[in-house]
Amino acid sequence: MPARRSPARRPTMKDIARRAGVSESAVSFALNGRPGVSEVTRERVRRVAEQLGWRPSTAARQLSGEGAATVGFVVARPADTLGVDSFFLQLISGIQEVLAERHLGLLFQVVESVEDECAVYRRWWAEHRVDGVLVVDPRAEDPRPDLLGELGLPAVVIGGGPDSRQPGTSTVWADDAGAMASLVDRLYELGHRRIVHVAGLPRLAHTERRIRALRTEAERHGPQARVHSVTTDYSDAESAAATRRVLGAAEPPTALVYDNDVMAVAGLAAATELGFAVPADLSVVSWEDSALCRLVKPWLSALSRDTVGFGRTAAGELMALLDGGPARTVQVPVPRLIERDSTGPARPH
Results as ranks from 00 to 15, higher is better:
111 V>K: 04
67 G>P: 01
154 P>E: 15
269 A>C: 11
256 L>F: 04
17 A>D: 03
310 F>G: 01
247 L>N: 02
113 S>F: 12
12 T>F: 01
195 I>G: 06
244 R>K: 13
32 N>E: 10
106 L>T: 06
76 A>L: 10
251 E>C: 11
312 R>P: 02
284 V>H: 01
328 R>I: 02
188 Y>W: 11
298 P>L: 10
292 L>H: 04
283 S>T: 09
314 A>R: 00
215 R>S: 15
236 D>M: 13
307 T>Y: 02
161 G>S: 13
59 A>I: 05
175 D>F: 04
301 S>M: 08
268 L>W: 03
241 A>K: 03
262 V>R: 14
83 G>M: 08
121 Y>Q: 03
200 G>R: 00
81 T>N: 07
270 A>R: 03
230 V>W: 08
228 H>P: 00
170 S>L: 04
239 S>A: 15
199 A>M: 07
300 L>M: 03
87 F>R: 02
90 Q>R: 14
323 D>A: 14
56 P>R: 01
141 E>Y: 08
250 A>C: 10
84 V>N: 14
224 Q>N: 08
81 T>C: 09
277 A>S: 11
37 V>T: 15
113 S>G: 11
301 S>V: 05
319 M>R: 04
21 G>W: 11
333 P>N: 05
16 I>P: 00
40 V>G: 08
289 D>K: 02
20 A>Y: 04
130 V>E: 01
141 E>V: 13
185 D>F: 06
86 S>C: 14
39 E>S: 04
46 R>N: 06
298 P>F: 06
224 Q>A: 15
175 D>P: 02
100 A>Y: 10
68 A>F: 02
185 D>V: 11
78 P>H: 06
322 L>C: 04
35 P>T: 13
339 E>Q: 15
165 R>K: 10
36 G>Y: 06
152 G>Y: 12
25 S>P: 03
322 L>M: 05
135 V>G: 07
332 V>H: 03
262 V>E: 13
217 E>Y: 00
334 V>Y: 00
259 D>F: 14
208 E>N: 09
267 G>C: 07
183 L>E: 08
203 R>F: 15
186 R>S: 10
268 L>S: 01
70 T>G: 02
63 L>F: 03
88 F>C: 05
271 A>H: 00
292 L>I: 06
328 R>W: 04
158 I>S: 01
330 V>M: 13
27 V>W: 11
234 Y>C: 09
9 R>F: 12
188 Y>A: 14
122 R>D: 11
150 E>S: 12
141 E>T: 10
76 A>G: 09
230 V>L: 14
88 F>N: 01
223 P>Y: 09
188 Y>C: 07
283 S>L: 10
73 F>G: 00
142 D>K: 01
185 D>I: 07
107 L>T: 07
332 V>W: 05
325 G>P: 04
323 D>Y: 05
211 I>H: 10
132 G>P: 01
266 A>F: 03
134 L>N: 00
